[in-house]
């Protein structure tokens, strides 16, 4: 496969950037999107040029490190992480646009790498259980209803990649924040802090400069882990409840 890539190149934070065109050849359909970028970078290094910087780690779709907007879609045309996107999704001779996540709260560090530490600060505002829990508890020591376990697990699947923010027309972090809030607030271990958690995390989310939710639904469509849109409704419910009754 021969491809034309138009990649966002930016030398550093706050620097001006531009879409830059590259030709890559020798791509096989079995390659992942990141392997295709590796091929491009090898050529760039051999030519003495600066390779394209992008985040990646596990390359098996579970860590949430990789992520780029491919042809206007977060993680590209398939509902998965960029590392699990394969070149068979594209045709020979295609032109592919590759851009970083775009959000005021995710400033570009270099090329396709963005600073997602805003997510860490949202987690720091309540996305955990305060009590030290020691080693894993015995099974059934704390009874959890089946339905609650399913909901908590569905939301715990969030890997914090930021595709929801990238896909949202408002650059909103509601799906990410709601996944964390619903995950913990559904379980008995998270119940004692459910009000302070949702108030703290939504407060941190707003303070980071993410946009608000207009229920466009783009986030849930882009999410590689299938966090459902009703999680946002569940967080809104928790928030409105907490605003009424939080201890002051």
């Amino acid at each position: 496969m021969r491809l034309t890539l138009r990649v966002w190149r930016q030398t550093g934070p706050g620097e001006p950037g531009a879409m830059t065109e590259y030709q890559v050849s020798g791509i096989v359909p079995e390659m992942s999107f990141l392997e295709m970028l590796d091929v491009l970078n090898e050529e760039l290094i051999l030519r003495g040029e600066d390779p394209v910087a992008f985040d990646h780690d596990c390359r098996e779709g579970i860590c949430g490190a990789c992520g780029m907007v491919i042809n206007g879609q977060a993680h590209g045309p398939e509902r998965t992480t960029t590392c699990q996107l394969h070149m068979r999704e594209f045709g020979d001779g295609d032109t592919i646009d590759v851009e970083p996540w775009r959000a005021a709260a995710f400033p570009v560090v270099k090329d396709l790498v963005v600073d997602r530490s805003a997510f860490d600060r949202i987690i720091g505002a309540g996305g955990y259980i305060t009590a030290p829990t020691g080693s894993a508890p015995d099974a059934h020591a704390v009874p959890v209803p089946k339905e609650a376990a399913e909901t908590a697990f569905e939301n715990a699947e969030c890997i914090g990649c930021g595709a929801c923010v990238a896909a949202c027309p408002n650059g909103s972090a509601m799906l990410f924040t709601s996944a964390k809030v619903v995950h913990l607030n559904t379980l008995p271990q998270g119940a004692p802090e459910r009000e302070s958690r949702v108030l703290g995390m939504v407060g941190a989310m707003d303070a980071e400069g993410f946009g608000g939710c207009t229920n466009a639904g783009e986030c849930a469509t882009a999410c590689p882990k299938g966090i459902p849109l009703p999680s946002i409704a569940a967080m809104n419910r928790e928030y409105l409840r907490a605003a009424r009754r939080a201890p002051r």
């Binding site: 907007v69 206007g72 851009e99 959000a103 650059g171 909103s172 400069g209 946009g211 608000g212 466009a216």
Partner: peptide, 28 residues
Amino acid sequence: QLSRRDIAARPTGYAHKRHRASYATRTM
């Protein structure tokens, strides 16, 4: 107020344009 905030949350748009959300949502 919310719209001002939403627009400010994405200062740089995507070069690859694509309609996001349904027509009814985009025209709110």
